[in-house]
Each structure stands twice: as C-alpha cells, then as structure tokens.
Design a protein around this nucleic acid. Structure first.
Length: 229
DNA sequence: AACCAGGACGTGA
DNA sequence: TCACGTCATGGT
C-alpha cells in the first residue's frame, strides 16, 4: 500500500543488508562494511570517521574516499587531533584522491574545531549546518550514520529514482523529499532504533540500486522497481 | 572524450 | 528564492 516502504522491501529483497557505514579498521576483507551488525560507531573516533567520510564523499565515490582514509590511517592520522596538527599540505595530499582537496581540507579543519567544542555531546542539525562545508545531505549523513539519529539522507540518486517512478516531480526540494520519506516510514516503524536502521539501510540500498540503473542515461533503464511500483 | 561520482558554496538576477 | 559556475580526482 505504501509505495515508499514497498520500494524498500523490494530493494532489501534484492540486495540484502548493506551495513553502512564502512570503517577502515574493521573487517578489511569486506571493505569495512558490517552487515547486520548495528553496533556502530563503537567509539568517539569512529564517530569522527563517519563525519570525515561524510565530508570527503561529497560528489565523489566512496571508493575514492577509502583511499584518502587509508592514506590518513597510514600516517597515523585517522583521528581529529592528529589531523588538526598535521601540516595542511600533507592533509591535502592525503585526501587528494577524493577530489576538491583544497576546499575539503578547509571543511575538515572547520569541522574539527566544531567537533572538539562538542566535548562528546551530540550536535543538532541546525548547528551542523552552520559549519562551513556541512550542507543538508552531509549533516543528515553525520546524524544518521555517526550518531544514529533518525534523519533520512536524501542524495542525487534518491531524487533521481523518485522522479523516474513519478513519485515526486523535478521541483521537489531536499526538505520535501526528506519529509516524504520520513513521514511514510515513521508511521510504519514505531521503534526509533529500528527506524534508524531502516533509514540507514534504505539510503544505502538506493545507492546500491542506483549505481546499477541510475548512473547513466537514460536513467532507470532496466530498473525492476518500475514494474512493481 | 564526455560524463558522472554516496555536494556545498558564492554569485547575480 | 533560483539558476548557474566553481571546485578536482578517478573511473567508464
């Protein structure tokens, strides 16, 4: 009955649990993914790793981000304190594979100031958005995967799929799409922890599905969702 | 060789 | 508010 939840069920049936967010030092045989293990992030440093990855993955594949994170890890700099005291040129060199390394280096350093001022407390969306380099999607990504807060992450793929399925139109804005997803799902899954897991898996599934069917034009060619939705 | 990737920001209308 | 240019590397 509910299209949004129905799409999720079809995607999950086809691809299974995705286990976002991947962590550099966890299960390297599986590229850091942790399918069906929802105990992440397990400590403050892993929270920061999500934040860092969220910034680095802006308009880039996560594969490139992994290279950057690995570079930092090899330098023993995969933590906020170490990055803060790095030579900025060395930081840029480390994150170069993710692209936009000049502005992303700045964004990361700006975020680290903010992160340290939190003193371990949980940031809210408003204050995250005030940090230079943290836009709507990055903020939601940090909250959903870094802090396990029920904030649905809307990306270009989400928009593209929903437009192709005629569920939204081209002029739908970020907030519109986010509210559509959340309002549909929060009434079906009442438990907040379960809702967070649903949001995490759903966004990951959209990305996985879109890599196959919504990356090159014409978008949606061969997409099985079109048959069932 | 153009096009896209797990976007954000600054500018001018 | 909105459309558009800019940022940059890496893969197809």
């Amino acid at each position: 009955m509910d299209k949004i939840y129905n799409i999720y069920q079809i995607l999950y049936k086809n691809y299974g649990a995705q286990g976002w967010w991947p962590f550099i030092n966890y299960d390297k045989t599986n590229n850091g993914y942790h399918k069906l293990n929802y105990s992440f992030p397990r400590n403050k440093n892993e929270v920061f790793e999500v934040c860092l990855g969220s910034i680095l993955t802006q308009n880039t594949t996560f594969k490139s981000v992994v290279k950057s994170l690995q570079n930092l890890n090899d330098l023993n700099c995969l933590n906020s304190k170490a990055i803060e005291s790095m030579d900025i040129e060395a930081l840029k060199e480390a994150i170069r594979p993710s692209g936009y390394f000049n502005q992303k280096a700045r964004y990361i350093l700006e975020f680290i100031k903010f992160f340290h001022n939190l003193n371990g407390t949980i940031p809210n969306r408003e204050e995250l958005l005030k940090v230079v380099g943290i836009g709507k999607e990055t903020a939601d990504s940090i909250l959903l995967y870094g802090y396990n807060k029920p904030q649905f992450v809307v990306d270009a793929y989400t928009r593209r799929v929903l437009i192709e399925l005629s569920i939204i139109n081209q002029k739908a804005k970020y907030k519109d799409i986010k509210e559509l997803m959340q309002n549909s799902l929060k009434n079906i899954i009442k438990d907040e922890k379960e809702l967070v897991i649903l949001y995490q898996e759903y966004h990951a599934l959209i990305v996985e599905h879109s890599k196959k069917f919504y990356s090159k034009k014409p978008y949606g060619e061969g997409c099985f969702l079109k048959e069932d939705i």
